[in-house]
Design a protein around this nucleic acid. Structure first.
Length: 915
DNA sequence: GATCCGACAGCTG
DNA sequence: CAGCTGTCGGATC
């Protein structure tokens, strides 16, 4: 269940007559517990309550009671030993009149009339496994309104299928936006009489709903007609009290879809909600899901929390403005200048969704402006910050419509907050008619025409920004001091999952300037376009992106282009986990990169809550020079060749568990010679046995005499045949072979391709010739052991952690990016034999703890002393080879590696003589 | 022929 | 069910 569904279930529960015995079960059911869970609680075997209530382990202890006893009951629940024993997170007591609950983790409590408890449902959301951002939890209204509007939307489409078709989609969206505006306006004093919109529909439209659409249409028509034109337009008398609104919101057709009786009653219910409580930044991001079938299930998936938005906006420009405010103090002149500067600031979000970033930016600017006006003694002064300075582009029609509405609502709320209700209402209508949110594809639109660098309407056309670089002086002149700040959380999409249309967008942006761009994430197109725009207009920008564009192979594709546009990273946030409303959170790790086309003397690097002021930030988002490491197909430093492991592409059919292996072996003893040990990342790290079918070409007939193998090979053949992958197709005729099989004899060194960032050393191990290493690990075949000493070193881990890709924030090992690029001074034989001894010592230290796995041994909390000592010695020996002593810290390690890498890749001959 | 990646995905305590 | 940590196979070079 998502938050909206839970809210609906809870509201329904509160409307029904209170039944003391049933309430606890109904409550748990509303929070998404399964029927079987409830059944077991009823039967008593999973009910741990010692008070005759209902206690669900690790969740909640509920007890209903006689009237007037809620307080004592809650105390009893709090003090009950069973509550603690079952680790309950919440306690809840109610008599049907009063409702009391407490969050035992945070100590927060709720005491309210029974009928009001649905308004606090966010308090209990963690019962449903939904851990939300606090802002959302506290805005029950936005979730409630979204749920109701969602119902209405679906109901209307049922009766008016043509409104759902592409041709009328925009009208439908606009219709919904108008309704929302009217609900807001009638509750907040924008319409002179409270609830006039809902009441008029209720009284003027027939109960059978047959003319509801006509009534609404007439009201909309009134709001699109100026007072002086109304007589001529023949506006009906009952619609006349409604003011002229327009602002394009009510222009165009004022037709409304037909309403069923159900739809009409939904409409009236929604009108009855208290719309003063709407929070435009949250509401917008939730409501955008209503019109999108794919998103409806994952409500709030793209909600960007306010703290995350401020991570972008504060360092981009708000911190600077606040510092200027601080500096101005009470100096009237300086305050005036600052206000003038702020009035010219333009904020542009080329992927604005429902306008989250713009709304927050607007609110924050208004707060600063209000403080200026307060200090100047002009508290109720009209704001100089205009909505026209907040521009956005959004691909989907409904969010684009909502974004405009959200800004309008934000403007009104800011006026009420900073200037007072009377001033707000007086100046609000009619709405400005300019359109500042463009519905379209940001990667195809000309940003210069949507957010031109001058306020006077001169349009620069830049079809190909590279082909026609504009003269910087000219732009400075046109810009007249108004700053532009770009902020966005554009869509991410890895190359494999891009739609044909997205691939086409990528081609338009990158093909003129880069040969191999197809492995870039979709968001990279926004990064480059932003950098181009910065260079042309002098704007500064900050984007939330997937951390992939600052890692691994993408760095060498994207960042040279960004730097060639003379942009620098003037601030950055290193990887942080995304958080949103969905119960299974979007599994994505983000970074924030701030780009500036100016020379910045001071850059700010935000790393896990700590800010550092640094001279420069490189594309891997580490302090220091902007070194870019390129993939190599062979080692830079005379190391042994490392390869990918063997790739099955078998749908699991060539892979066997221990059980499967012994089952086959017992029926066909001859099968044993065709089965080899099979290891990938998981087996290297966590142990465990897997096996694979390994058949040489000349043994195929023998192997096929075993029925189980015959069937498995047939399944592999079918799978490869029907695959979309060319390589799989090509190998369909030889299902007994892995599609890629470099397996060879001899001692191998294996490195898992993915492993946890928790470990202080990269896991690696050796294998004998009988082992098949999977494509989830990299291998050095027939390996001199000193190679392993390098892999196991702290230096290598620091290198891999910086220049390779990541899985979330976990290490992802790559031969081309990490091993082949690893800079090592030339090694003499003595050094190699020292390192070999180090590697042997590490293996021996591990052996002393047989059968502990790598995961056990390298658990950072419980690493055995002898193993730690062996690694310490290994690092000592290796680091002496680099600089004659231990490095002081990882920063020094990385700086040295980067500088050695730069030397070795630019002047390889100079290094050969010794470092 | 060989990889690097996933607005991820599957396991486990 | 939430934290943890690495599968699998394809598009791309």
């Amino acid at each position: 269940m998502n938050a909206v569904e839970i809210e609906e279930a809870i509201s329904q529960l509160a409307e029904q007559p209170f039944e003391a015995a049933e309430f606890p079960y109904a409550f748990l059911l509303a929070f998404g517990n399964k029927d079987t869970t409830i059944k077991r609680l009823r039967a008593g075997n999973s009910n741990k309550s010692d008070l005759g209530g209902v206690l669900q382990t690790s969740n909640i202890h509920i007890k209903t009671c006689a009237e007037g006893e809620a307080t004592v009951t809650l105390r009893a629940l709090r003090e009950s030993p069973a509550t603690a024993r079952a680790k309950a997170k919440f306690i809840l007591a109610t008599d049907g009149v009063e409702f009391q609950a407490e969050d035992l983790t945070s100590g927060e409590a709720i005491i309210c009339p029974y009928a009001d408890f649905p308004n606090h449902f966010g308090f209990f959301l963690s019962l449903a496994g939904i851990t939300t951002v606090r802002a959302i939890r506290e805005n029950a209204f936005d979730i409630k309104a979204t749920g109701r509007l969602n119902r209405l939307y679906i109901e209307l489409l049922k009766d008016n299928p043509e409104w759902g078709a592409a041709a009328r989609r925009h009208e439908m969206n606009q219709f919904m936006a108008r309704l929302i505006f009217c609900f807001f306006a009638e509750d907040t004093g924008i319409f002179a009489q409270e609830t006039v919109f809902t009441r008029t529909i209720d009284t003027m439209s027939a109960r059978d709903s047959s003319n509801t659409h006509e009534v609404i249409g007439e009201l909309f028509r009134a709001m699109n007609t100026r007072a002086e034109d109304r007589a001529a337009a023949g506006i009906l008398r009952w619609a006349d009290p409604f003011p002229y609104v327009n602002g394009e919101l009510f222009s165009g057709t004022t037709e409304a879809p037909r309403f069923s009786r159900i739809a009409r009653s939904y409409l009236l219910t929604i009108g009855g909600l208290d719309w003063t409580r709407v929070n435009p930044d949250i509401f917008g991001s939730m409501i955008q899901a209503v019109a999108d079938e794919e998103e409806r299930g994952a409500l709030g998936m793209h909600y960007t929390s306010v703290p995350n938005i401020l991570k972008v906006l504060n360092p981009l420009f708000l911190d600077d403005l606040r510092a200027a405010l601080e500096e101005a103090g009470d100096n009237s002149r300086k305050l005036l200048n600052l206000r003038g500067r702020m009035a010219r600031i333009r904020v542009f979000d080329p992927a604005c969704g429902s306008g989250n970033f713009l709304v927050i930016a607007y609110k924050e600017l208004r707060a600063i402006e209000a403080e200026i006006s307060r200090r100047r003694g002009e508290a109720d002064r009209r704001s100089e910050i205009t909505l026209t300075n907040f521009r956005g582009i959004e691909l989907r029609d409904f969010p684009a419509t909502i974004a405009r509405l959200a800004l309008i609502i934000a403007e009104y709320q800011c006026d009420v907050l900073h200037r007072g209700q009377r001033e707000a209402t007086r100046d609000f209508l009619p709405l400005d008619s300019k359109n500042w949110i463009t519905c379209g594809n940001a990667l195809r639109l000309d940003w210069l025409s949507i957010c031109p660098p001058t306020g006077t309407g001169v349009k620069l056309r830049g079809e190909d920004l590279f082909a026609t670089p504009l003269d910087q002086a000219e732009i400075d002149f046109e810009n007249e001091g108004g700053e532009i700040f770009i902020c966005a959380n554009p869509p991410y999409q890895g190359s494999v999952n891009q739609t044909p249309s997205q691939k086409d967008d990528m081609a338009r942006i990158f093909s003129p300037v880069l040969k191999t761009y197809k492995d870039l994430d979709y968001v990279a197109a926004f990064v480059l376009k932003v950098a181009q725009f910065n260079r042309m207009t002098g704007s500064k920008s900050a984007l939330v992106t997937t951390n992939s564009v600052t890692q691994g192979e993408q760095v060498a594709m994207l960042w040279p282009l960004v730097f060639s546009q003379r942009n620098v990273i003037h601030f950055a946030h290193t990887s942080f986990l995304w958080s949103n409303l969905a119960s299974n959170k979007a599994a994505v790790t983000c970074v924030i990169v701030g780009l500036s086309p100016m020379e910045e003397s001071e850059c700010h690097l935000f790393d896990n809550g700590v800010v550092r002021s640094v001279r420069n930030i490189g594309p891997y988002l580490v302090a220091g020079d902007s070194v870019i490491v390129k993939k190599r197909s062979a080692p830079l430093s005379g190391l042994s060749m490392m390869q990918s492991g063997n790739k099955p592409t078998d749908g699991g059919n060539l892979i066997l568990s221990s059980n499967e292996r012994s089952a086959i072996a017992s029926t066909s003893p001859a099968s044993m010679r065709f089965m080899k040990r099979y290891v990938g990342s998981r087996e290297i790290i966590n142990g465990g046995n897997r096996w694979c079918i390994w058949i040489e070409d000349d043994e195929l007939n023998d192997a096929k005499s075993i029925p189980e193998f015959r069937e498995r090979l047939e399944r592999v053949r079918r799978l490869r045949e029907t695959s979309n992958g060319k390589q799989a197709n090509d190998n369909a005729a030889s299902p007994h072979r892995f599609v890629f099989a470099p397996h060879s004899r001899g001692l191998s060194i294996m490195v898992p391709n993915v492993s946890s960032e928790q470990r202080q050393f990269l896991p690696c191990n050796i294998a004998d010739y009988a082992t098949v290493v999977s494509n989830l690990a990299s291998v050095i075949y027939d390996a001199p052991l000193w190679n392993m000493a390098l892999i196991a070193s702290r230096l290598h881990l620091v290198w891999i952690g910086t220049v390779c890709g990541k899985m979330k924030t976990d290490f992802r090992y790559s031969n081309t990016l990490g091993w082949n690029t690893f800079p090592v001074p030339p090694l003499i034989e003595k050094q190699k034999s020292d390192l070999t001894a180090c590697a042997e010592a590490i293996l021996l230290a591990r052996e002393a703890h047989f059968p502990a796995t790598i995961a056990d041994l390298y658990d950072p909390e419980n690493m055995p002393d002898n193993l730690r000592a062996a690694h310490d010695h290994n690092d000592e020996v290796l680091e002496r080879i680099y600089i004659g002593r231990r490095f002081r810290n990882d920063t020094e390690r990385l700086e040295h590696l980067f500088s050695l890498y730069t030397k070795m890749t630019t002047k390889p001959k100079a290094v050969a003589g010794g470092v």
